[in-house]
Design a protein around this nucleic acid. Structure first.
Lengths: 248, 248
DNA sequence: ATGTACCTTAATTATCATACAAGATCAATT
DNA sequence: AATTGATCTTGTATGATAATTAAGGTACAT
């Protein structure tokens, strides 16, 4: 009985260790910002230690993480060098999150949109045939969150992201689910970067998302694909608008 | 500029740090093999150290890498626990390579094939419009490698994988290129797992790949998409055959 | 007696400091 | 030009201390 206290967090993915990640993120940012360009050498581990005010142990573990994500490569005597951009693991959600703030150009957003164009129609199809009743119910709940957000843009974004994550998960393909996490990491910045989207545009999005829910309920793969494409058309339009806004 | 002394190795996957990765891989294998199921606790860092005959330093750095890939989560006092399968980063090529030998069922291959179905047609389209002349030349070279492999199955596989990697790169979308690396990591096992493919089937594949080369040369996006789909049909057929073989 | 809030304890990871080993670059030397 | 050795940086080992937190214990209120 006493054990039913159980915190309602449920989400095991969002657990934050203490200080180390800050150093990791700091070094990653220094790479993405161009302070350490591809091919260049980082300072020695000892130097990094004094710079960040931590021991060499912490620096090493941070570099180990960065190496695991393809950002750097350490070799004895020669030091730690920044890998070529081609090698770094941009499809790691964390890497994308570190990278996005420094990707001033829109190339990254374009790449993300292209990826969505490739994947989401098929994901929607698969979801239509494979989604569980529970997933459909969750999807409808997320949709209600979008529809009822009103002027609360943060709530809208949160529900929007939740919606997509459920669809990706409902494809019951672990690779798609993971790519969904990646897309969402990109979407978070996209939504911040594209600033405000007008209410009526959001309502259009709500309508398109509704179509997805209905298609899944009807197990209509074709309709699901169509609705997914419609959502992508809206996203593309918003991206274009955001670009124009930024260039002014 | 001066640093572009290009070694002819090309294959970046064969990068071999010293001993540490062995420990990392060993622990990862123990996770994927089911020795440490999701949610369970790993032994303490000290215990792991004596088990693998290395210092706690090495163990910690290995766990750090695994944590970076979402496989485990370390917390003070509670220890290191194995994350839920949903959390681990299956789209990391290294994770996939660690995972594949233990994925006894065919679900993983199916998932990979579905991913290819989603992406490769679009990638081929993009490559048709964006590939550089150099990339097209490289692609043709890879094709010649396939066509001239004869009975040398290893050479055929190598050229096949190189071919796909070039097409992915030619899409000039960093996300697709990375996903290409992932697919290739899967393909390596696929080709081993599906055992021998008969010569005439390989020749069919060669013909389909030729179509891709021609489509890129002609900048014909539609044809490129069609050829990509044809290749996928062949891959799907081979996968079915392999399944039948295995079940006997 | 029972439950609740608070405090203490202990176990494990997190960090630090130091030392030594191993590998690779560079330059001096033959 | 080749060899060899000096030297620098990462790789590993060891031991100690700090930080964190689950678990248990204690006092207190009900």
């Amino acid at each position: 009985m006493t054990g039913t206290l159980k915190k309602p967090q449920g989400d095991t993915a969002t657990r934050r260790p203490r200080v180390m990640p800050d150093v990791t993120k700091a070094i990653a940012s220094d790479i993405f910002s161009g302070r350490y360009p591809a091919g260049s050498s980082l300072p020695t581990e000892n130097e990094l230690g004094v710079e960040y005010g931590v021991s060499r142990t912490v620096i090493r573990e941070a570099l180990k993480v960065l190496a695991a994500k393809g950002l750097v490569l350490s070799r004895p005597r020669v030091g730690t060098i920044v890998c070529n951009e081609d090698d770094w693991n941009i499809i790691d959600p964390q890497v994308l999150a570190w990278h996005a703030p420094h990707a001033l150009d829109d190339k990254l957003f374009d790449a993300i949109l292209e990826t969505r164009r490739a994947i989401e129609p098929l994901v929607a199809e698969l979801a239509a045939t494979r989604a569980t009743l529970q997933e459909i119910a969750d999807l409808e709940a997320a949709w209600r969150g979008m529809a009822g957000a009103g002027e609360d843009l943060a709530a809208f974004s949160r529900s929007d992201i939740a919606f997509h994550q459920i669809v990706y998960a409902a494809s019951h393909n672990p690779i798609f689910r993971q790519i969904g996490n990646l897309i969402d990491a990109g979407l978070k910045f996209s939504l911040e970067a594209t600033a405000v989207i007008s209410l009526d545009r959001r309502m259009e999005a709500v309508a398109a998302h509704r179509e997805v829910v209905e298609a899944l309920r009807m197990r209509d793969a074709e309709a699901a694909r169509g609705a997914a494409n419609k959502i992508l058309d809206l996203a593309a339009r918003d991206l274009v608008s955001a670009k124009k806004l930024k260039s002014n």
